[in-house]
Write a protein that binds this DNA or RNA. Structure first.
Lengths: 237, 237
DNA sequence: TCAAAAGTGTTTCAAGTACACCCATGA
DNA sequence: TCATGGGTGTACTTGAAACACTTTTGA
């Protein structure tokens, strides 16, 4: 009962652009490949889509394999499929980007893969078209985050106002006026102030906040601009 | 020199959501399938990615085959790949959306396919998950068009102000205040007013405009909101 | 002359932007 | 006590929104 038996089949892969934030700069998680081809070169974490799983499922599986994390914010980014993007085999790859709290990853300490965090614009040479994948994901991240408050996925559950503004400054490579930014943020009613303070990063200490989950869900399908319009250049897709 | 010979291969298809605008409502172009499976049912125009072409190339080829049009605005929408989305075979499909000037299509009159335009929310039952594809593409179109002036791709080269506002009203299903909308549009310097008038749609006639191509290219990578913020709900990706 | 669509201006209000100082604390 | 980062308020400017009437012309 197969109908398409004369049609060509292809290898279908997924590659994950894993974003993290260390408090200062936006980072990506790369691995040193342990298999051929291109063994021992740096690359994105990837793998092949299996017959019994969807591409989204494959991406989650692969992210879990590397980081031990589940239920992570993840989104399809783009399909890369030029005939000779890999030299030996024809592989079409779907790229995904994931946003994770870098600190949760750090106590995983995966032995299986040689993985390392790199600043978003200071990483080693990568195989195939993985640089294009990263650039596309970066544009998509900026574009999406200009409309939706997804960047909170990069922060721990409890975070401070300075952390958020540092994050936005890192993602967009801009300088933010903290007074205006904080006001806009607070006026969204998205944040709940805790009594507790973070004393790690300053002497005075900065108050912790958490997301108001109900409001957050609404914002996911609503318009909210967290950035001044002049910062929104080159957002791609 | 193949490295991945134990990995599974899959059929990889593309499906095109072809948007057109008839002056009143947003339309999509559907075909009646001339082949098994699901012969004689309505569906999106699609086809398989060939070994010597990229997915983007496949989408362009398929669009050309149906419409005779080339150099059309086209964008990757999303990948659909649940294991059993087609009953008999495992097919992963990349959906694309295209924006075409419906009038250019109309003098093509393709005999090869039984194709027909349908209003965007009034089309027949479709095979597989093509309805999901259309909904995803619709959300993406709205989201993208809220930031970039891509909807002009749906209009003829010369168009009138009432045509543009009808188009935005159709895409977002809103009612627009023409005075505010026209002012915003004109203040973008994106439009060049011609001396000529369109007399087909009214007695008084409406002036034609064309896009200022240089400004247009800049807007493609710049921020410009053509819509009131309250209209921007449910824009998905 | 009238019906039908095109085109035009002003006021009000909300949001964005620019800008500078005091506060709390640990070293 | 001082160096460091956290936090707060106001005036100004720009853009968004609400709103109604006149113009043109073919039938």
């Amino acid at each position: 009962m197969e109908h398409y038996k004369d049609e060509p089949k292809t290898l279908l892969a997924v590659d994950c652009i894993i974003f993290g934030f260390n408090g200062e700069s936006l980072q990506i998680l790369l691995i040193k490949r342990g298999f051929e081809p291109e063994i021992n070169k740096w690359s994105l974490m990837g793998g092949f889509v299996q017959p019994d799983e969807s591409p989204d499922g494959a991406a989650s599986r692969i992210l879990f394999k590397l980081t031990g994390l589940q239920d992570v914010y993840m989104e399809q980014s783009a399909v890369f499929g030029k005939p000779h993007r890999e030299k030996m085999d024809r592989v079409v790859s779907i790229s995904y980007f994931a946003l994770i709290d870098i600190r949760e990853y750090q106590h995983i300490n995966s032995q299986e893969f040689k993985a390392k965090w790199f600043p978003i614009d200071e990483y080693p040479e990568l195989i195939f078209d993985h640089v294009d994948m990263i650039n596309t994901a970066k544009r998509l991240l900026r574009s999406k985050a200009a409309l939706y408050p997804i960047l909170f996925e990069l922060l721990p559950e409890k975070f401070t106002l300075p952390q958020i503004s540092n994050l936005y400054e890192a993602v967009y490579e801009i300088v933010i006026d903290k007074r205006n930014f904080n006001r806009k943020l607070l006026s969204s009613n998205l944040l709940i102030k805790l009594k507790e303070k973070d004393r790690e990063n300053s002497k005075k200490g900065a108050f912790f906040f958490v997301i108001d989950k109900d409001v957050y869900k609404e914002h996911i399908v609503t318009f909210l601009r967290f950035l001044p319009s002049w910062s929104a250049q080159d957002m791609g897709k």
